[in-house]
Design a protein around this nucleic acid. Structure first.
Lengths: 200, 200
DNA sequence: AAGCGTTTTTATCATTTGTCAATGTTTTCC
DNA sequence: GGAAAACATTGACAAATGATAAAAACGCTT
C-alpha cells in the first residue's frame, strides 16, 4: 500500500504525521501504530467514496485535494453538507459512528490523495489510544462548531449575505471550486449564485 | 441545594438517576459521585440561563420543562438553534467546551426544573469517569446527528415542508410551544408560519 | 364580566429566490 | 485540434417569503 516498507518514509503519511504531531503531540511510536491502520488511496476528481443508503465503512484523511459530503433529495437535487480540504478527516460520520445506512454521499471534488481507515480500526484506536481518542473528541467538537455556524447562516442570512460570509470564512471553497459546488453548499441554484456575483 | 441530605431521595435527582441508569448503566456509587456535582435550580419561563458574548460556565440537565439556545442577529431577530425537553442536557456547547465567549443565548421556554453542573466539574467527570465520558461522547454524536438533520432541512426544503417534517420528528415543539418559537426554529416569520398552517 | 396586553391571523405589497429557456463559455476526451 | 459535454450567464416570469399594518382571538388580572 505504501511505496516502500516504512510508512514514515512515504510523503503522504508524512502529511498525516505532521498533522498528528502538530495538533495532538503524537510520539513516533504512537504514529507508527496509527499509520499501520491507514491505507493510501489516490482518487480522481468526482470519485464517489461512499454512496448514500449504505453503511459507511471508512473515514478519510485528506493529504491533498478536496472532498465533500452531500445528500440528494426527492427532487434529485444535490445539497452539500460539508466540504473539506487538506489535513482534515472526512466521512459520512453519522453512519460511520452508528454503522447504520447513511443519508449522504462522500465524493472527491478534485484529484485527491487520501489515507483511509476502516471503522473497526478507527474505533479500536479511539478506545485503546488516549491521544487518538482526544483527536476523535476534538473532531466531534469541531464538527459541532461548523454545523452551528452553517445552521446560523441558513437561519439568519440571505443568499447574498451567506456568499459574503463564506468568502471571509472559507475562501478556499470559492477560489477552488465550481459555481455549481458553491451554490450547492450555499443552498441556492447556480443561476441565483450567478446573479449574486453580478450584483457584487 | 437538595431538599434533604441525600440527593437520591430528591425527585429531581431521581430523573437524572433514571436517565443515567437507563442509557449508560451507571451504578449506584457512580451516580452518587456524579450527583454531588449537580445543583438543583428552578427557573421560571423565559429565564435567560446564559447570555451571548459571555463564557458559558454551566451545562443543564432538564428534569422538567423546556430550554432553547438562540442567536440574535444584526437585525435583532432571534434564531433558535436548538430546543430540548426533559431528559436532555443543554448548554451553549461551543462556548462551554472551548471556554471562549459564546455566540448564543440559553433560555427556558417553560417553567423548568433543572440540574446544573459547572464546566470544570463536568470535564473532571469526563476525564476521570469512563461512563460519564461515554455520555459526553454520545451527546456530541447526537448533537451532530441533529445538526445534520437541521442543516439538511434548511438546504433542501421549503418552509412548508420543514413544518411538516418537524411535526413528524419533534411534535413536542409544535404541541408545547408558541408560534413565535416554532417560527424562530424553522427560520421564518410568525406571519409566514400562520399562512402555512392555514393552507394545511 | 371588562379591560388590557400579548399572540395569532389576515391582507396587501415588496423582495428574494426558483424555474425554464436560450445562449455563451470552458473543459474533457478522442 | 475539434466535437461533445458540462458549466456559467442572462432574461422573463412564477412562487415563496418578508415587511408592514390592522383586525381578531386569547389569556390574564382585577
Amino acid at each position: 500500500m505504501t511505496k516502500n516498507g516504512d510508512p514514515l518514509l512515504d510523503e503522504n503519511f508524512l502529511t498525516l504525521n505532521q498533522f498528528l504531531a502538530n495538533h495532538y503531540s503524537f510520539s513516533v511510536q504512537d504514529s507508527h501504530l496509527v499509520f499501520n491502520k491507514f491505507q493510501f488511496l489516490e482518487a480522481k476528481k468526482n470519485t464517489l467514496l461512499h454512496r448514500q443508503h449504505e453503511v459507511c465503512e471508512y473515514a478519510y484523511f485528506i493529504c491533498q485535494g478536496c472532498v465533500r459530503t452531500f445528500f440528494t433529495n426527492r427532487k434529485g437535487e444535490e445539497n452539500t453538507r460539508y466540504i473539506a480540504f487538506e489535513n482534515n478527516f472526512v466521512s459520512a460520520f453519522s453512519s460511520f459512528i452508528t454503522q447504520t445506512p447513511s443519508l449522504e454521499n462522500v465524493q472527491t471534488l478534485e484529484n485527491s490523495k487520501l489515507l483511509k481507515i476502516k471503522q473497526s480500526d478507527f474505533f479500536h484506536l479511539v478506545n485503546s489510544h488516549p491521544t487518538f481518542s482526544k483527536l476523535y473528541v476534538h473532531s466531534l467538537e469541531q464538527a459541532q462548531v461548523i454545523s452551528t455556524w452553517r445552521l446560523e447562516t441558513m437561519l439568519s442570512m440571505t443568499a447574498k449575505e451567506r456568499y459574503r460570509d463564506l468568502l471571509e470564512r472559507m475562501p478556499q471553497i470559492i477560489l477552488r471550486l465550481s459555481n455549481k459546488q458553491i451554490a450547492s453548499f450555499l443552498g441556492i441554484t447556480q443561476e441565483s449564485l450567478s446573479r449574486l456575483k453580478a450584483q457584487k
